[in-house]
């Protein structure tokens, strides 16, 4: 007969659910509010013309503006995709931690790492916003260095830790 399976703390479940819900909502917004989002992005680029290196040449400026808007939209699209995917990864990985990892301290460390990793998709929201506010290259650099990389490393460390805990248990 199978025994009851332990679940992760509700805080971890909540982060996974909120990521899924944000991912879904961003997908719907991308589809229903595309013109509004593009208009907003164009407005922000115009406001931060200096950061985008506008030269005064209409042809060049249009190309820079289009590229910045495209990158901001890509950020939203990545957020939708990663919100759904990472939300599920956090959910199932933390469910495995709860069910399989024996030590309480080890479980807490893994929950912490996985939950931080679960916040990884938010980096893409920052990515999209920072591109509009700071210019394309500076915005991408900021999001990658300060948000996507640390949170991504946390997710990888959590998953590697889970793998090690499972391998150790089996040995």
């Amino acid at each position: 007969m199978s025994r009851p399976v332990r679940r992760p703390p509700l805080g971890v479940v909540l982060v996974a659910l909120v990521m899924l819900a944000l991912g879904e909502t961003a997908g719907a917004a991308m589809s229903r509010l595309k013109p509004e989002i593009q208009r907003y992005a164009a407005g922000r680029v115009a406001t931060n013309a200096g950061a985008h290196g506008f030269s005064g040449s209409a042809e060049y400026d249009d190309e820079v503006r289009d590229r910045a808007i495209f990158t901001a939209e890509a950020g939203l699209s990545f957020f939708h995709l990663h919100g759904e995917g990472v939300g599920l990864v956090l959910f199932f990985a933390s469910a495995l931690v709860a069910a399989i990892v024996p030590g309480r301290r080890a479980r807490v460390v893994l929950y912490l790492l996985l939950t931080l990793g679960g916040l990884f998709p938010l980096g893409y929201l920052v990515y999209g916003a920072a591109v509009l506010e700071m210019g394309r290259d500076a915005g991408i650099e900021l999001a990658e260095r300060w948000i996507l990389t640390p949170l991504g490393v946390a997710a990888i460390a959590g998953l590697v830790g889970l793998w090690l805990a499972m391998a150790r248990r089996r040995a």
């Binding site: 509700l10 805080g11 479940v13 909540l14 659910l17 909120v18 819900a21 879904e24 719907a28 589809s31």
Partner: peptide
């Protein structure tokens, strides 16, 4: 869009946010 994406997508989004609310409420109650 109107036959499938809007009704079914809305159902999922509303249910997900409600569920997140229930989880938050369960945490507060505990």
């Amino acid at each position: 869009e109107w036959l499938v994406w809007v009704p079914f997508g809305t159902a999922t989004i509303v249910a997900l946010w409600c569920l997140a609310g229930f989880v938050a409420w369960a945490m507060i109650s505990r």
